[in-house]
């Protein structure tokens, strides 16, 4: 099993519902977030283009954050989800430094926190919080190894890119262009 997410940058309107849904679902402290919206504006007027991206941890296949963790608190679970065990984390910050996407943050309680692909919801057969609220349905989640999953189907018919592939992390967020 290999969980992944596809994000349709043409359909995303940048409303930020996914951000709020995640904060509520996961009790993220005020001022912090596990997912966020990036607006990438390119060109000069009148030929301006805008790309909207809902970003979060890429649950990298080759995760530098897991490799550099001195305690093993950062680890990979079923389906390739990268997680942090809070009471094993010493808060050294190495994993935050190692992430090319700045997807991790230091929780006010001391440990490091990040997106979990809502694995507590997946266990109940639900989808992630962000996917389930997106009003434009521009987020697709599922198992890449299953050709009939939402994410596999989305990737089959569209062109896509991943962020900073040159960082060598094998990221698992696919941005449909």
């Amino acid at each position: 099993m290999r969980y992944a997410m596809a994000i349709d940058t043409a359909k995303c309107v940048g409303c930020g519902d996914c951000v709020v849904a995640c904060q509520t679902e996961n009790n993220v402290p005020v001022g912090y977030c596990r997912d966020w919206i990036v607006e990438n504006v390119s060109g000069s007027y009148p030929n301006v283009e805008i790309e909207l991206r809902s970003e979060r941890c890429n649950h990298c296949d080759n995760a530098p954050c897991v490799r550099c963790c001195p305690t093993g608190a950062s680890h990979i679970v079923e389906g390739g989800i990268v997680k942090v065990t809070h009471n094993e984390c010493i808060g050294c910050g190495a994993c935050i430094e190692s992430c090319p996407y700045d997807a991790r943050y230091s929780h006010p309680d001391g440990y490091v926190d990040k997106c979990t692909f809502c694995d507590h919801r997946l266990a109940k057969g639900q989808s992630t919080a962000c996917v389930s609220v997106c009003p434009t349905s521009c987020l697709y989640f599922g198992d890449l190894e299953d050709p009939n999953s939402e994410v596999s189907k989305a990737l089959k018919n569209r062109s896509w890119k991943v962020l900073a592939p040159e960082a060598g992390t094998k990221p698992q967020l696919y941005f449909l262009t």
């Binding site: 001022g31 912090y32 977030c33 919206i37 504006v41 390119s42 060109g43």
Partner: peptide, 23 residues
């Protein structure tokens, strides 16, 4: 070509706008 990035709704302490976890 000019490119600009905005990250909306993200002002995480010690991460935005620049990473500053180690002092």
């Amino acid at each position: 070509m000019k490119e600009e990035l905005f990250v909306s709704g993200r002002h995480i302490p010690n991460i935005d706008p620049y990473l500053s976890i180690w002092h």
